[in-house]
Simulated scan of single mutants.
Amino acid sequence: MDERAALAAIADRLPATGDDCAVVDGQVITTDMLHEATDFPAGTTRYTAGWRAVGASLSDVASMGAAATAAVAVYAAPEFDPEELSAFLDGAADVCEAADAEYVGGDLDGHDEFTVATTALGETDDPVLRSGATPGDAVCVTGTLGRSGAALRHFERDDVERGNELFRFEPRVAAGRALAEHATAMMDSSDGLARSLHQLAEASDCGMDVETPLPIDESVDAVADDGEDRLELGAFFGEDFELVCTLPEDRIDDARASVDAGLTHIGTVTEGGVTLDGEPLPDRGWTH
């Protein structure tokens, strides 16, 4: 099975697993695992690794419209270098502070590859699920897309300073809380905009009609080879951790005014099919 098939099989046995987070008695909980070989390009600092790993779990909390409360992490490495460990803790603590949460520790383990497993907690009495979109709703996305794809290009070109800078995204917890008052469905874009649209459409049994221009980050322009490559990094690469949501058309202005990260109206919920500029949008993105 691929990752999506495995997740579907788990969901059949464990319905409480929910969407981006499990929901239990007014709390949301999520866990993630990142590996050096697949998630941290050469040149990624331990500070950035701590920020990004914990931030990924906080992004799941954001996507449920919850207030983030705390996060923990398992830090596994071949050896415990004191400077690297300290930098990791600084990054984890700083991203929690940015999300108004607290980093409260975790566990250490020896491992032949640097690996991080993180868990984040949040609180909400009314979580936003993926399954509430209805035809006629607007499709919106926070912030900009493509930063992680641009970061990888910088790492590949040995511009590690810029790569690390772009890799440190801000979890959209505040935006998620604001959007919870308006959104009918929501998730984060960790697997890429295109795949997120397909996942929302599947969960809500509907379609999505999206149009360009998409809010692609200006950092992509510095590394993209052409317009097709620009779209690839912005819509399919993934790992951007923005929020993709649906909401009634008449709530767009109120929602936009409440989201400091910015909110772009990119399309409309339809009866079926996922399209970009009228053409079928491939269901592909980040794959673990």
Rank of each mutant, 00 (worst) to 15 (best):
F155I: 08
L108Y: 12
A56Q: 08
R168T: 15
A9D: 07
G143N: 09
A68Y: 06
D254C: 05
F236L: 05
V74T: 12
G18R: 10
V23N: 02
M186G: 01
R172N: 05
E113W: 03
P213N: 06
A76T: 12
G234T: 04
S57W: 01
E181W: 01
A93F: 01
H265Y: 11
A8Y: 03
M33D: 00
G18N: 06
P78Q: 09
G262K: 11
L58K: 07
V274T: 09
G163Y: 07
R147A: 12
L108R: 15
C96E: 03
T38L: 15
R153F: 01
P78L: 07
P15W: 14
R153A: 05
G132P: 06
V160Y: 07
E218T: 13
G267C: 06
V173M: 11
E211H: 14
E211T: 15
D107S: 13
A150P: 02
R157L: 07
G143P: 02
T119M: 14
V24C: 04
D159N: 13
A77V: 09
R4Q: 15
D19W: 12
P280H: 12
D217W: 02
V23W: 10
T287K: 14
A37H: 14
L14V: 15
L85R: 09
C140K: 00
P213M: 06
E102P: 00
A183W: 02
G227S: 00
T142L: 09
L7A: 13
